[in-house]
Design a binder for these strands. Structure first.
Lengths: 124, 124
DNA sequence: TAAGGTACATACATGAAAGTAAGTACCCAA
DNA sequence: TTGGGTACTTACTTTCATGTATGTACCTTA
């Protein structure tokens, strides 16, 4: 196995901002890397969607977790909630510009993980 | 608040690989986004380090979690462990080339989070 | 000889995240 | 009038990640 010998770059500022135990960065990271956070974000990267579409698409999620995850993502300003006061109710969820910025960085990482995950878990 | 109206790109393959409940991708993502996983990885991005250096640098980590996190990262092939059979023991940890690939994608994301985290958590 | 350093392992406890199940309120189609 | 759809909320339970505490084995310095 190849081994890196050197550092990538000076990361001092990053270290200061991420290492403290209860920092904002940690909070945000926990939100997006929560069990369903990533899934919702990449689902919404495919375009605005309704509650029931997200629920069907995100296989295995419970209604509670869908509501909860959408709420924190909305609270963080990643997701926009558009509720139309009609009956039956119609609610559309979409990414905000901040959400788009985030997924733009998230997608390459997830693609890499997706491509390498099998090799990684079976140790090759 | 600005709202995106359209999808970013076709992400179909990603959806298939990440959405299943107990998929390899999920496992790997959980490993790297675990409470201490990211920290250890960016710490090692600054160059090879010894156990005690990592322990001091990663403020607040317990020895149990350091050992555990290093083991899973080593098991995933992100981290290389070099133990010299001397007394007192000397063990150097470093990123593998796979680990380097990963942090190369991780760093931009973490920098973005670090820059925006404060605005995000206090809702502005 | 007592304290502190190296690098861990292991048993037990806790707490937060996630799951389960049920309820709400309204409408429509069979 | 029974079942299904819209979009949720709430109470309770379980599971798993993480924390705490202590032990190991050897060496060096005060």
């Amino acid at each position: 196995m190849k081994v890196s010998t050197q550092s990538v770059q000076p990361l001092a500022p990053l270290m200061g901002g991420i290492f403290p135990a209860a920092c904002p960065s940690r909070t945000v990271l926990d939100h997006v890397s929560s069990k369903w956070g990533v899934l919702i974000l990449v689902a919404l990267a495919q375009g605005p969607q309704r509650w029931s579409e997200l629920r069907r698409r995100t296989e295995g999620i419970s209604e509670k977790m869908l509501a909860q995850t959408l709420k924190t993502l909305e609270g963080d300003g990643f997701v926009h909630r558009d509720a139309q006061p009609i009956i039956p109710p119609r609610v559309d969820y979409s990414l905000t510009s901040r959400g788009l910025d985030l997924v733009a960085l998230l997608i390459p990482l997830l693609e890499w993980i997706n491509e390498n995950a099998e090799d990684i878990v079976n140790g090759s």
